[in-house]
Design a protein around this nucleic acid. Structure first.
Lengths: 127, 127
DNA sequence: GTATACCCTAACGTTAATGTCAAGCTGTAA
DNA sequence: TTACAGCTTGACATTAACGTTAGGGTATAC
């Protein structure tokens, strides 16, 4: 399969796939004309990355996952470790955003939102 | 007041303050030696930006808020509009992260996390 | 007069994940 | 054979919000 077919199958762009190859997440065979050639296993790995990216893993994290995926002697404890680190990061992000949202909600509640200049939001930001 | 004093007061870096000036969020008077000189009103505005940044507003959004802050004919409805847009963005982000977290939680629950290679997380990412 | 700690501008570096473009080879249908 | 679409590498561009460095002027205490 050629790169554009892989792109279509996985929903990634051609550029993204080449980028992952640059970072050694994927390898590609070459045809006589130097076009990249992918077999089913390669397609499998690219799909793997695509799914992991959609799950919120960074390309770097995908790299670690791919290594485990390729490693028949892996321990599932290593995989779950990466997943848990990711989950904790997500938790932190969510909490931070929720704090921000709370503050904003509070300010929004206090602002009349009319045609007069008086505004508790600006007041709060200046005080 | 000199720039480093403003930085100390607001918790921003000197570089950040100069950056905001570059983007025309702030102006500065100059002393005979070309040093930036800030009065109380300027300090006020820099604090304003600092607080808004900490509340999660982007520099660009701060720029809009500053304009309203400077505008005596503003309507508080315009301010609340920006705040609400920001809150909605936050909501979307939070929801997206929570979805990701849910998927991860589900995968983590299913993975034994032992010394054997079998791992539902990798399975799911490949299927 | 010298050490030290400020200040200035200008400009390149950082991070992630591609987008975009140039310049050229390849494959295929009409 | 002449389009035209698709492939190649390589390299610069993008976004946000500054960090960092270079090269140089300034203030002040000793």
């Amino acid at each position: 399969m050629k790169i554009s077919e892989i792109a279509k199958e996985t929903g990634l762009t051609v550029r993204a796939i080449r980028y992952y190859e640059e970072l050694n997440l994927i390898k590609s065979d070459r045809l006589y004309n130097n076009y990249r050639d992918y077999d089913k296993e390669a397609l499998f790995k690219v799909s793997f990355i695509s799914r992991a990216r959609k799950l919120g893993f960074s390309v770097d994290e995908c790299s670690s996952l791919i290594k485990l995926f390729n490693d028949n002697n892996r321990h599932s404890s290593e995989v779950i470790k990466i997943a848990k680190i990711k989950r904790n990061k997500l938790n932190d992000q969510i909490e931070e955003l929720q704090d921000l949202k709370k503050s904003l909600d509070w300010l929004i509640k206090k602002c009349p939102g009319d045609d007069k200049p008086n505004c508790p939001i600006l007041d709060e930001l200046s005080s």
